[in-house]
Amino acid sequence: MNDQNPVIETQNLTKTYRMGAADVLALRGVDMRIGAGDFVALMGSSGSGKSTMMHLLGCLDTPTAGRYLLEGRDVGSLSAQERARVRNQRIGFIFQTFNLLPRLTALDNVALPLLYRAAGGQGDNGTSRLDHGAGSRATGKQSPRERALAALTRVGLADRAGHRPTQLSGGQRQRVAIARALVGDPALILADEPTGNLDSSTGGDIMRLLAELHAEGRTLLLVTHDRAVAEQAEYTLHMRDGRLLP
């Protein structure tokens, strides 16, 4: 682990949900450090808190208590609008169900984060602290479509740019989703059961692609309950009852 420049650092991260009259403690104080360029698997059974952890790390939700530093910046207490910008510029999501927009072509799906970036005001500036790191490309003056095509090329689907998701196989869809996660040159890629909806052979291809991204210097956090998948990461963190196991 690269302790000098942690991408993720959480301190006593706590999340409480209100379910009816009762409070449910989903996270009970998690301290987690993930270094730049790490490929980490986060394992745990259903109800262990790993999904909640992923939502917090992905800035989709805010913690009840504790701190979450992303690239040294406290993002746990940001407004909804600021969190949207962080998701847009520093985080790439890969979902189990791919979550591509059915009416858009592969290329437009991949370009989607860049379109929201264009009106974000600050553009790519100010948050590209890790751009000098390994794996980042020169993204200066390229148009969103050019960058989307480059990302599609990276996952080997340049020839499917004009296809809609329904015209693609499951593995191809997940590759498009990976290209979408990559296109904004994020600090962190969060993959939630990325092979969960794929057969083992296709799943293997996707895992090899993730390993390649890791080799290129990307930081990946893989959330899974599948031990075989988790073993392909550099190391594994285990969660149980809202706590990180030592």
Binding site: G58, L60, A80, Q81, A84, R85, R87, N88, Q89, F93, N99, L100, L101, L112, P113, Y116, R117, A119, G120, R180, G184
Partner: peptide
């Protein structure tokens, strides 16, 4: 949800 995940703000 997907649009929000990739960075769409409420006003978008």
């Amino acid at each position: 949800g997907v649009r929000m995940a990739v960075g769409a703000r409420q006003q978008d």
